[in-house]
Design a binder for these strands. Structure first.
Length: 216
DNA sequence: AAAAGAGGCAACCGCCCTGTA
DNA sequence: ATACAGGGCGGTTGCCTCTTT
């Protein structure tokens, strides 16, 4: 769906056009890339005839024009994948999008805020603001942001078996306590809440007994 | 039928990381 | 070791469309 914003937003700013892209601009960008390929985003505007910033070029291509991008609505499976990886990675949209062929980080981010955020909270009773369960010693998630442990991130794969196999040994060979060491580095919930999430995801989508035993 | 509000999403902004000179 | 440029990323904005009143 091509939606154009108002002419107001197309005002020139510092000589560079901003706002929505016209069909003509899209066509020019597609033609240029198909002919010369992507070689330097910041220099391309000088040669392609469009007065936009290189960043704007890149964004338009990566989020909209690239042929591999899927334009249809998200499937339930994709929704589940997003919820699943968001519980692990937090707001690392590009990392989540990399698990969804044809989807961009912007797509995933918008879809999360529009549809999945509320669903995830309702469905799994997760709350962005965490309250203490027992006492001050409870493992608390302070910020639901991108504070994912690099080692953990590196072992997360699209395949759940591989993922689970990495729980006790990271890619660096480090022994890891899955239940304590990583879930409290940026995911939107307490350890207990995220265990609950995993439990339910496993129940719905996988062989419950197998994964339940492996994880908990 | 018109107005108001909500939702959806494209696009921008600014920060950060990485590579190079 | 440092500075700079390019690119990537997450947060946010603002316009358009749809729905409700």
């Amino acid at each position: 769906m091509l939606r154009l914003k108002t002419p107001k937003s197309e005002m020139n700013t510092g000589g560079l056009k901003k706002g929505s892209w016209s069909r003509e601009e899209d066509q020019m960008l597609i033609s240029y890339i198909s002919r010369y390929d992507i070689w330097n985003w910041s220099q391309m505007p000088r040669f392609s005839g469009l007065s936009r910033s290189g960043k704007s070029y890149r964004l338009r291509w990566m989020n909209y024009l690239k042929p591999s991008i899927k334009k249809d609505s998200f499937s339930k499976e994709e929704d589940d994948i997003i919820i699943h990886y968001h519980s692990i990675l937090g707001n690392r949209w590009s990392a989540i999008a990399s698990r969804l062929p044809g989807r961009t980080d912007n797509d995933v981010k918008n879809h999360w805020h529009a549809h999945l955020k509320k669903r995830a909270i309702d469905r799994y009773n997760l709350t962005p603001k965490i309250t203490a369960h027992d006492d001050d010693s409870d493992e608390m998630i302070q910020q639901p942001t991108n504070h994912v442990n690099k080692n953990f991130e590196s072992c997360v794969s699209p395949d759940i078996d591989t993922f689970l196999s990495c729980i006790t040994t990271t890619s660096t060979g480090q022994e890891v306590d899955f239940r304590v060491g990583y879930y409290d580095t940026g995911s939107p919930g307490t350890v207990n809440e995220l265990q609950c999430l995993w439990h339910q995801l496993c129940s719905e989508n996988m062989d419950h007994e197998k994964y339940h035993m492996n994880v908990f």
